[in-house]
Design a protein around this nucleic acid. Structure first.
Length: 204
DNA sequence: AGTGCGATTGACT
DNA sequence: GTCAATCGCACTA
């Protein structure tokens, strides 16, 4: 029996997370994101990620540590959250060793628990539109800057858990929405999954 | 102090 | 398919 505080999910240990950013991006596919709010639990299965490794000019850590991005420089497995375009929050997982700035963007989830709450948060009914895309994902799970720096390897308001299902088939493509470093194959997704964002051509 | 520009989304032609 | 909204941040002066 899992402890009540675990909400029935199995926490993933930090030691299980690959140090390498690109490996972490692949590793997170098929894992669960668990969001605990006072009203209840929201969760989903990660179906799409992007790696922003060391030395990547498109990464927020590229120009060094600042007040905004300092959680990218902490030890791996912490949430880095920022506001994109003044409109949408983005959920990232910090990667690499402490002191090294890099991370993985969680782009899409397949909704599991708390669907009714997500529908209310997003003001849409369609399951497919709830968490397909990074901004929608954050809105569905009530994620904003207040959760920046949260340890995803501890049971709390936001954490990462194991999925019982077998490992999905993972596809690779270029990342979405970038002008710099646009050609690098650093996006990962579950092949054939309808909750993956992006154009068809990138999801084969 | 001012400027330019996004790791996006939703509305609209 | 196109495009504006919206704001924090990095960079220039």
């Amino acid at each position: 029996m899992p402890a009540a505080a675990d909400q029935g999910y199995e926490l993933i240990a930090r030691s299980e997370l690959p140090l390498d950013t690109v490996e972490l991006a692949r590793h997170l596919i098929g894992k669960l994101v668990v969001r605990v709010t006072p009203e209840g639990v929201l969760s989903g299965r990660v179906v799409e990620t992007e790696a922003y490794p060391v030395g990547d000019a498109a990464g927020h850590a590229y120009r060094g540590q600042t007040a905004r991005n300092h959680t990218l420089f902490g030890c791996r497995g912490h949430a880095y959250i920022y506001l994109a375009y003044g409109v949408s929050y983005m959920l990232n997982v910090s990667s690499e060793a402490a002191g090294v700035g890099a991370g993985v963007l969680i782009r899409s989830l397949e909704p599991l628990e708390g669907v009714a709450t997500m529908q209310r948060n997003r003001r849409v009914e369609n399951l497919r539109d709830l968490a397909r895309g990074p901004g929608r994902l954050a809105a569905a799970l009530e994620i904003d800057r207040r959760l920046d720096g949260v340890d995803l390897c501890r049971v709390g308001p936001l954490w990462v858990a194991r999925d019982g299902r077998e490992a999905p088939e993972i596809g690779t493509s270029t990342r979405i929405g970038l002008s710099r470093e646009a050609g690098r194959l650093l996006r990962f997704y579950v092949r054939g999954n309808r909750f993956v964002s992006g154009p068809k051509a990138l999801n084969r």
